[in-house]
Design a protein around this nucleic acid. Structure first.
Lengths: 206, 206
DNA sequence: GTCTATACTTCGATAGAC
DNA sequence: GTCTATCGAAGTATAGAC
């Protein structure tokens, strides 16, 4: 029972331009600013084109999330295979743009069922990979898995990076130095001092 | 120079009704849903009344935040004086409604300077109290302050509670049980098994 | 002091032109 | 296959009536 309205090709150039514009808009002004008119302005296109390429604004938002999440997931899987996966994971999850946009989508998910389902799906996948990595790495390390199980540490790492980044954006810094130093020290305890580079590209979280 | 428009008295009954409505609306549908029409509908009043009691929608939002933050701050200070401040603090910071609304305001703060300043101010104050409490409590406990300084632990506690609550709302649960168990165990290590009740009221976080 | 009538802006969406 | 003209609903805000 879908709408009879025609929708533009998925690989059309302007469709990608619109997705990029929407993503940038979320970073600059938050999800609430993603209106057809503003997206079009960012993209340098006419507002009506947004509705030509996307059935609704929700669909556009969903597509932005999917694209970014899919990319982030691949990246995270690559990081798992580097020499220092935990250091890589930490660097990955402390990417400010990634954390910011993730928070926007989580806020959005709280009152948008379609977005929520998608965010939940990817969040579980990210977490699974993190836990898998931690299980491998901690097996050889001097960490008691009874006191610090991989699942708990995955949640801890994600939590601290997210909150610290968000607070930094606000200008809040109480306890940050101590928390970051704690993480740094524990990472080093498990994987040794960080090497220069594990991947060629700068990671982006989702 | 400010607008010559007249604004309703700060203690008028309907003003409070509107603030309550806006707060509930944020919980139900997120900050973006706080429009003059919807707030009025929730309050059972005419949309124009929102603009009579508040100079702008931003001012309404700011007022909602201030009221809640001020209340939460007082509550947190009370908890500090209970027999098991850390258990109380944890219960306080795992209040779902509190965490949800806080995240909405943080998301909002990212692109609203007035809200950002206010959120940052209160966040620092909350953190300061938490650190102060941890310093006292940890002094007598079997925790190495070199490895786990109060500031780091305050950030850790806040981070984990926020992220776990947010993820629970999404339906994500990977690693939660392990993380919560870890916190429970460490709290018990410091303060012993939790007593029935430290305060008479159910706390609400901000 | 309290509220309403009303102006004006921006929104999402679609039918139909190229 | 791509884009535009246009509509009706919803948004903020103010001047002025009670």
């Amino acid at each position: 029972m879908a709408s009879p309205r025609r929708i533009g090709a998925p690989d059309a150039k302007n469709r990608t331009v619109l997705l990029d514009a929407a993503e940038q808009l979320i970073l600059d002004q938050g999800y609430a600013a993603v209106t057809s008119r503003k997206v079009a302005e960012y993209a340098g296109l006419k507002p009506q084109l947004v509705h030509y390429y996307f059935r609704s604004m929700d669909e556009l938002l969903l597509e932005v999330f999917r694209r970014r999440a899919e990319h982030g997931l691949e990246l995270q899987q690559q990081l798992m295979r580097t020499r220092q996966p935990l250091h890589a994971l930490w660097e990955f999850s402390t990417d400010p743009a990634g954390a910011r946009i993730t928070m926007e989508f989580i806020a959005l998910a709280n009152h948008n069922p379609a977005i929520r389902a998608e965010v939940a799906l990817y969040a579980e996948r990210f977490r699974d990979i993190q836990i898998e990595t931690l299980e491998k790495v901690l097996g050889t390390a001097d960490i008691d898995p009874g006191r610090f199980p991989p699942g708990a540490l995955a949640v801890l790492m994600t939590s601290v990076s997210r909150v610290v980044i968000l607070e930094q954006a606000l200008g809040v810094s109480g306890g940050h130095a101590e928390a970051l130093e704690l993480v740094r020290r524990e990472l080093e305890r498990v994987e040794g001092a960080p090497a220069q580079n594990d991947t060629s590209d700068t990671p982006q979280a989702t």
